[in-house]
Design a protein around this nucleic acid. Structure first.
Lengths: 206, 206
DNA sequence: GCGCGAATCAACCTTTTGATTGATGCTTGG
DNA sequence: CCAAGCATCAATCAAAAGGTTGATTCGCGC
């Protein structure tokens, strides 16, 4: 019997997962969480085999944060990420946090059930598409932006001028321009608009 | 007995809706669709009372397109939109297409069930938040961009320079600049990056 | 200690963008 | 016919962004 916790902020998605999983004789849902911290607490108190984890809960804390914390538990369950997001940042972030699998929410039920059983057996539960995405893109995401560069690109994406950004971050415009030069190099961009577009497509900003 | 069709591309969401609705004595799911065109066909052939319609199906055709077509049917069902998107453009687009209600997917089951019954009774099924959003923003969305302006802002959001855009659309850079001036006025922006940010927040671009 | 990355800053120059003003032509509705 | 909106285009100038080069300091790992 594989014991499962469901972590998703949408009641209808939880109901759907329940419906799919409840009809399987070897699977048992032992708990449900609608926030990352509730997911962590259930992982700790219920010691499930597998936890199905959404990435975005409409809270500051994310499914990646909860996944990271869950890895510190003495009997950490296998985390299977189930999400709408398929950018490189999202995939790599979840895998680096210790997720054993990554599935998109449009996956048909038989794929979901196979992924749950694989994760419970300690196997990688990445579909071939996601696995090859991961391998092919390791180099790019290693060039990820520094925390300061992240702040700058986020403000650019909000429509801020270099002068606005300098004021917000209490630095000079020269420093803003320096950060932008680095951002352009890392993202292979030549303007603020192309840098923002690339950062969006990589999931660096949302 | 309220007869319902479910239109959503995610099997897990459909399973969740089924689970929520099947437990209600006065509600009956008569069909399911995973594309907008399948939704239209079922609306035509099964003549349900209510159709639960997602907006994005991963296809070129959207739930708004299907909603528009459904209004032409002799016994058009009431369309209740159920989606993750809450931008002004999305809400207004659906309402203008003839949707009788609009719900976000994080709505709890009791709200969903109330909205279904209201829609079936011919009542507006907009939550108070969404209704006030709609009224408060009618003015803004009436200033929506012309088709050409839409093309220009989309290309800007992709990171294109004015020269790139002129080449793509086979016009002069002067014309690109003119369109941008109009876009800035309509979106209350002063730079391309702030225009893109505002267009995103309004759902003009995604 | 050295090398590297990150953060900070500047000067100088070029390019692009944005603001303003003006114009033409077409289509649509009153 | 007139007005408004849309699409197109131009000239001129100011402002912002981008490119390049150079520098300093700090923290970390080898």
């Amino acid at each position: 019997m594989i014991r499962i916790v469901i972590a998703d902020d949408h009641p209808i998605v939880r109901a759907g997962l329940r419906a799919v999983i409840d009809s399987e004789a070897d699977l048992d849902i032992v708990g449900e969480a609608s926030t990352p911290s509730a997911a962590f607490e259930l992982a700790d108190s219920l010691t499930p085999d597998v936890i199905l984890m959404d990435l975005q809960f409409g809270t500051d804390e994310t499914g990646v944060d909860a996944t990271t914390r869950i890895q510190q538990l003495p009997s950490a369950p296998h985390v299977l990420v189930l999400t709408n997001y398929d950018t490189d940042m999202d995939i790599l972030g979840a895998v680096e946090a210790g997720a054993a699998g990554y599935l998109l929410k449009d996956a048909p039920p038989h794929e979901l059930l196979a992924a749950i059983r694989a994760a419970a057996a300690g196997e990688s539960a990445l579909g071939p598409t996601i696995a090859s995405r991961l391998l092919g893109r390791m180099r790019n995401t290693q060039n990820v932006l520094s925390p300061r560069e992240q702040s700058v690109i986020s403000l650019v994406a909000d429509g801020a001028t270099n002068a606005d950004i300098a004021r917000s971050l209490h630095i000079s415009e020269s420093t803003v321009k320096s950060h932008l030069v680095h951002i352009f190099t890392k993202l292979d961009a030549t303007s603020r608009t192309s840098a923002v577009a690339e950062a969006r497509s990589r999931g660096i900003i949302r």
